[in-house]
Design a protein around this nucleic acid. Sequence first.
RNA 1: GGGGGAGUGGCGGAAUGGUAGACGCGCAUGCCUUAGGAGCAUGUGGCUGCGGCCGUGCGGGUUCGAAUCCCGCCUCCCCCA
Length: 834
Amino acid sequence: MATVSDTLQDSPVNTSGSTDSLRKNYDHTEIEPRIRQLWQENDIYRWNPDDNGRPKWFVQSMFPYPSGDLHIGHWFAFSGGDAAARFKRMEGYNVLHPQGFDAFGLPAENAAIRGNVHPKLWTYDNIANMRRQFELMGNSYDWSRQIITCDPEYYKWNQYFFLKFLESGIAYRSDGAVNWCPEDQTTLANEQVKDGKCERCETVVVKRNMPQWYFAITKYADEMLDMSGIEWPEKVIVSQENWIGRSEGVNIRFDISEYGLDTKSIGTFTTRIDTVFGVTFVVLAPEHPLVDELTQPDHKPVVDEYVAAAARETEIERTSAVREKTGVPTGAYCINPLNNERVPILVGDYVLATYGTGAVMGVPAHDERDFEFAKKCNLPIRVVVAPEDWDGDELEAAYIAPGVQVNSGDFDGLPSQDGMEAISDAIEANGWGERVVTYHMRDWLISRQRYWGTPIPVIYCDDCGTVPVPYEDLPVELPADAAFKPSGRSPLTEHEGFLNAPCPNCGGPGKRETDTMDTFMDSSWYHMRYLSPQDDANPFDPEVAASWAPVDQYTGGMEHAVMHLLYSRFFNRALRDMGYVDFDEPYVHLFSHGTLTTDVGKISKRSNPLAPDPLVQEYGADTLRCYLMFLGPWDKGGAWTESGINGIRRWLHRVWDVCLRDHRELTGDDATADSVLDMASHNATKRVIEDMRSYKYNTAIASLMTYVNHLNEAWDNGGVSPELWRDSIRRLLLHLAPLAPHIAEELWLRNGWEFSVHQQLLPEWDESKLTVDTVNIVVQVNGRVRDTISVPVDAGEKEIAAAALASPGALRHTQDKHIRREIYVPGRLFNIVV
RNA sequence: GGGGGAGUGGCGGAAUGGUAGACGCGCAUGCCUUAGGAGCAUGUGGCUGCGGCCGUGCGGGUUCGAAUCCCGCCUCCCCCA
């Protein structure tokens, strides 16, 4: 068993001075496991929630799905996250850095369908393997707080929160059109449909009508638009704003009472009520319930055929901007209440039944799609908001911008922004419609017709209706012996033992809900569970939460900009309103790292598994971590290629070499050499700390490389003092520790310093040491570099001007010329304008 | 169609108004070696008459000075429809 003293015993500081034998000693295959064991035995990454002497820092990387292998993309994500945690620890914070597994989800179940292996077995095997791979990375996780979301001890609390949501009216069941993935045989939330396809398997999603459970996320839509409490990348904020998609407008009704139907009007939603006098037609979605009733007999065959054709097309096809807008008249008319005009009603497939009211008022003069549609269908185009210099001519394209109301009755002459308000007032006063706010975001559909998820804890009773499972009966556990064949219904439906349960209310026969919850339920609050993962009385310990939540720093990929990050923000607000937490936002700072790609494409759980294990074996975890962080800016991602990794390995060899030289060989008789090295040290500290704080790992490593080059130069030139050398090596290792934790620890111990380097504070830098005695000033003539001069740092402008003007390079270009101007940028350059 | 980001050597990238190409890869030459796909050292944007000239996607502009700021255009990537 290795201990700290053993390490020192086994590997004393080498005093032979022979660099050849030293170099051979950097054997990552020996060092890395031994150092990790040392960390483990001393438990240095265990979080102590009661250590209040240091400020708290809750830092978390988005937990992985246990797909089976930790691929190189995971390494890219987690190397940076771990460096951030280690750096913060060394800045003096009490750091909580946990990790876990997002363990429910379809791949496990699909594996069961394919390979006859139980999802639970598959998942836990994968977790075991990924834990082993995580160990190879040497991350500073407190594994004692690991959570696995498919453990009943975890999902019990999903069910608990579901029941709480039910009580507070946030969870509700509703029947209606939902997104259905034919491949995965389940419904999907709107957020999980990308380009009309399933986010997971890319199958085209279809609409189905079925009763499903929802969370009322839209209740928080306005509040979630307020991002003032978070420091997140702009692109994530913008994505969420767009997804929530708040728009203010007016619902206005067009009268159809002349047809004697039950429905007396067509409701339409518009954000441009200022253009209502320009309505020359109304378009219904092909699925609109009024289509059938309103279509006049002589138009029937055409309309029926059009509706049937539209049903065969997907939403993406129908709303594609490049596609020609088509439509057919119903032969019916409706009345615009503002001007009592009769306008034709058409059916057009660019209008979707699921969006707004499923009907739009057509204003061709001021809407691009309506303009195109009117041209195509030969409908009139009437200008009602005039461009500034409008001459009364026909428009060649829709005029979208604000202008002045014309052809708008009493509202003529008003600026259209004012017209918007005045017309809205008139509509509301006359009962023709009302102002409404709509959102693009829909309520969160959480039902899934799959096995491997959290059972929704309700029982349906013929007499009592929908009855929540009592809290004391939680968790409702997944039965182990389900049949995994996709049928469009949850496998649990086929499981009699699970399905039949007595009604908790009346004791009569009841049927359990057989759908399971969307797995985004699990990740919406998992950060809170890290605070007290073993608590069996509460989802999380309120006292610990009071002082430790929210998460201070969260890192993860952009793919969760909407979905996970949106759901968590909603979930936290719901928890807040139920009194569980007293803050609004779950994740204060967010950093979105980029995507690592291969030449094949994106690395993800869906493709390109590139196993890092052989790379770790060949190069070592430290080399791989540093290489990934050196590829480019962390937030930009990059293309994976193995070429170049040798550069990092060579550099770590040089680090090894320079850190094990015997400082007693140094003479210490050159004060200038000392000040040069000291400046390099302080400069490295400044640059590395500043870069690490802003996650610029690539330039932080570059600065460390430069620093090692300086150390080598200083050694070769000789003359530096042994004390300064030791101090400089110390600095190097402290800065290296977050990025290459194993080698930094090994070299730290070999130099005789106290275990562990990861429990040290970062060195500071002294600005005054960053200035030198003489400084090189660039001499320019007309902005072009002609010479450089070396002057004392405290030289005045006059002195510098004289030296610059006298420099050979400047003289060549100023001879026989008239000097018009001289520009001096202190400490940098002197520009002569001739 | 809308929103966001980016275009710099052979390559990854650095520099956000002040010496373009830090740092690294690759390449070249040399040293060491029985050998090397190892290590070390030096060099490395292009052209050159050795004075310089050209050079950060393209075209214009502002400035003493622009990769950086402004206007117009082209291309690529990501997100949303």
